[in-house]
Amino acid sequence: MAANLPEQVGKEAVLVKGWWRANKWLLLRRTSQLLVIVIFLTGPLLGEGYWIAKGNLTSSLTFDILPLTDPYVLLQSFFAGHEIISQALIGAVIVTVFYFLVGGRVFCSWVCPVNVVTDAADGLRRKYKIKGGARFSRDLRYWILAMTLIVAAVTGSIVWEFINPVSILHRSIIFGFGYAGLVILAIFLFDLLLSRQGWCGHLCPVGAFYSLLGRISLVRVSAPNRESCDDCMDCFMVCPEKQVIKPALKGADKGIGPVITDMNCTNCGRCIDVCAKDVFKFSNRFNNDTLLNESKKEEVAP
């Protein structure tokens, strides 16, 4: 079967699996992203007594007991020469352990509000067949990550927070919007017209940091049913980091297991949604034995 057209992505899955199963993970993700904002807004909007979480994504206190701190911003603070105190460290350790288990870039696809903006740009690119644009290495984000730490050390300030669109957007929604819309518009247009997934997939050092955090994370998307793949290309078309899919999906001949082990897979689950053949599912990284899969097949075959 030939590849589907970009604007047709996901249509087949809806026909075969029904609307809910063809959009389940996307909807869960949007719900999660919305909740991350809502829990910070109950207090300011409903008043005293309705607080769920205080603060924002860089550091927060939920139900007056659960401290969470972004380990990346804390690392920058450390490079800037500030002594880390236990209050922040406890929060950062909790966050680190969480993403270490569920996948670092789960932050990007399940929590970060900028993801909604860049996904929208990507969706419009497909819909209006906007192709091409600037091409640059996906590794650029790691260079930027290193740069933010070096400049923090040189200037003695947490410099990335002066321009970080992730925290600008989240903080602005919670504490007052101001001109934040302009920054978000810039990111949107950049992704829409200049480069596909240019921000989240190439430049953002926050995502780069979290990818390193989840380098060997437990929860992973897997393609256990990869022999059913009919090359419709829907998963490649929707995937924000499409380079991560190929080894797992097409690597059976080379002895590569079906689990997507690339640290830049965001565990967004959109490939699971759009696949009409149910090739993908959430799994864990230890469920990656090719031989095991082959033997299972043999059991079923006779």
Binding site: G55, N56, S59, S77, H82
Partner: peptide
Amino acid sequence: FLAACIRCGL
């Protein structure tokens, strides 16, 4: 202060 404040708003 700018080395330490992570702008969380707590």
